[in-house]
Amino acid sequence: MDRIVFRRVSKSVNWKKLLITNSSVIALAIIFCWIALVTPGFFTTRNIINVLNQSAALGFMVIGITAVFITGGIDLSIPSVMALSGILAAMAMQNGAGIMMAVLISILVGLFLGLINGYAIGFLRMIPFVVTLSIQIIGMGICVWLTSKVSIPISNGTYLNAFSGKIGIIPVSVIYLAFMTFVATVLAKKSIWGRWLYATGININTATVSGIPTRKVLLGAYAWSGLFAGMASLLITSRLASASSTMGQEGVVLNIVSSAVVGGVSFQGGFGTPMGAVLGTLIITLISNSMNMMQISYYMTLIVKGIVIITFVCLDSIRHRN
């Protein structure tokens, strides 16, 4: 009996479910079609590559926050962690450090700040919103203090080429993003850490009694987020050929969070994939790119962006109710 009933039910909700679970992909397709109709010059190879390139750094930060979102938390510190990583690496290069050293500094600074977040949230049971907001503010303070608001130019050609160069017509940043998306997807799907992460996000009590080290899982999620913020700084500082405290302003969080939400990563924990998150990033980048291409006024751009985000948050809560 159970079996028959279940099958019937699952078939009848299939279309709705398909729509909801794949909303980001469908939205991407719709946005593409729409832009293509309205903006003749949009589908040029140059612009497609342009959009991918613009998405790369944001994509890194979004992959980072995805792990945190899956645990049901939030990381508001990403922008200043990213800026601080970039500034320290740039300062090191100014003082003659090589590319390996710069990369190492970026990654370690990101990881370290992520671990602070994770320790406070996982082990000291502090509220993610408060902890990460404080780290954002502290990080911003350090950035301004280090730079006196003057940006630090980067002239190391190897570094610039390694992170903002091109292979053929493809920017290397896009290749890095594709690779890290793949790595994150495999870890999420196939590794024990992925299982732990989702279980913790869906129901931390169940996960705890099932022997999952939930505190370490939280620590790991924020460390992951910090690590990716550090990696994002490599792409950003090489693209701007400089590092400055202005990179780390709070507004960046809006793009990160909206990309994740649009990509189907739930605010409420337990759901979402790195792949979806990166698709969300593409959508968010596409929105601003296409608005630019269509020459829509700045104020309108803000309104449209807001509406898109609200729509997806709404979809998220519908999905959660189901």
């Binding site: 613009q54 750094a57 701007l240 400055s244 202005t246 990179m247 960046v252 630019n292």
Partner: peptide, 12 residues
Amino acid sequence: SDPIQQASNIDD
């Protein structure tokens, strides 16, 4: 006020 966004906008 976001230098990254400004770079993207100029790319556009």
